[in-house]
Amino acid sequence: MTMEKEKELSFEEALKRLETLVRELEQGDLPLETSVQKYNDGLILAKRCHDLLKNAESVVVKLAGADGLTDFPKPQE
C-alpha cells in the first residue's frame, strides 16, 4: 500500500482495511518487520477515516429529472 492510494480510499474501504489489519495483528505470528509496516499502514488508514468523517460538509442532494441529475432545490423549512 502506498500513501497515494490510501488518500483516495472510501470510508468503507479504509475502515475495512483497518479492521482486517488490526485482526491480523491481534492474531500475531507476523514477522516483526511486517507488524511494524502494518502498524504504519493502520495509522494512515485511521487518519483517512477520521478525515473523511470530519471533512464531510453537507449532504449532496440530486433530483433525477427528465434530463438527468440536477441539484435538488433546498427543502423549505
Binding site: 464531510a56 460538509e57 453537507s58 449532504v59 449532496v60 433525477a64 429529472g65
Partner: peptide, 11 residues
C-alpha cells in the same frame, strides 16, 4: 448522520 452519502431523489 452521514453527509458522506449522496441522496438522489427519484420523483
Amino acid at each position: 448522520r452521514w453527509p458522506l452519502a449522496t441522496i438522489i431523489v427519484y420523483p
